[in-house]
């Protein structure tokens, strides 16, 4: 067997790949999505709270947000996952009665994501022209309503590309929960590929796992470009469903 064949067998052994694909899809994929989606949603909510605190007129709130962000942005993700996943596991076991490391894995990923997402939201909200807040307040909206109805929606829109990038990063970082030790049915994509590699001594299962990650992340990357363009050129004119459904009413009004 010459060198090329050997390399091909190491990376692209179709037999080994075929063996691992069913569990990648039926176990790994749903688990990875649970980790990434749950921490993405929670991280966005916590991030929005951090962003609001970061631009608050209350110095105490600004400080808390600042320190939180410095800590969780400054630590390696794997360290946070280990410290929280192991350190809090006795408490988690007490509360949930299960040894499933997912709640803590999601918590750790959420805390990390929130630090980044908070900064993304804050930069977006602060980029909205001062005149928007002023115009809203001049109409009679309170500061809170003005932020909620006028400023924050515009700020978030502007940073959607950066936000999707953060979700991509989160999807990949979800692989790190393998460090917490997962039962067979809890394994996510990376762990399944890794286990199969360890068992067979062949890299192909990991390559298959990698391909599955790419199938998830590459469309997201292109989605970023799409919304980036859409934000720049504006969306094609949109009709509200009830307008489209009631042309007679509309005509009668004119």
């Amino acid at each position: 067997m010459d060198l090329l064949d050997q390399l091909a067998d190491t990376f692209f052994n179709w037999e080994e790949m075929a063996k691992v694909i069913p569990s990648l899809l039926s176990v790994g994929l749903p688990n990875t999505l649970i980790l990434a989606v749950a921490s993405g949603i929670l991280g966005s909510l916590l991030g929005l709270l951090l962003a609001m605190m970061g631009i608050s007129r209350n110095a105490g709130a600004r400080w808390v947000a600042r320190i939180y962000t410095d800590i969780f942005r400054g630590l390696p993700a794997i360290l946070v996952i280990l410290v929280i996943g192991i350190g809090l596991s006795p408490i988690a076991r007490e509360i949930t009665g299960s040894r499933n490391p997912y709640p803590l894995g999601i918590l750790a990923l959420t805390l990390i994501a929130a630090a980044y997402i908070g900064e993304i939201f804050r930069s977006g909200i602060q980029s909205v022209e001062k005149g928007q807040l002023e115009a809203s307040r001049a109409l009679g909206f309170s500061y809170g309503s003005s932020m909620r109805l006028v400023v924050v929606p515009q700020g978030i829109r502007r940073v959607l590309p950066a936000l999707v990038n953060q979700f991509i990063s989160l999807l990949k970082d979800s692989s790190l929960v393998f460090m917490l030790g997962l039962a067979a049915s809890d394994r996510e994509i990376f762990r399944i590929g890794n286990d199969a590699m360890a068992n067979t001594g062949n890299l192909s299962p990991l390559v298959a796992a990698g391909v599955l990650y790419l199938i998830l992340t590459v469309p997201l990357t292109h989605f970023v470009n799409f919304i980036d363009n859409r934000l720049r050129t504006g969306r094609p004119e949109k009709k509200e469903p009830d307008d489209a459904a009631a042309p007679i009413g509309k005509g009668a009004q004119a």
């Binding site: 022209e129 002023e134 115009a135 809203s136 001049a138 109409l139 309170s142």
Partner: peptide, 20 residues
Amino acid sequence: PDELRQRIGMVFQQFNLFPH
């Protein structure tokens, strides 16, 4: 002050319409 501003309309140099 929010109720006061409902009673006074204001138009700005830069229009400040809500672009979204």
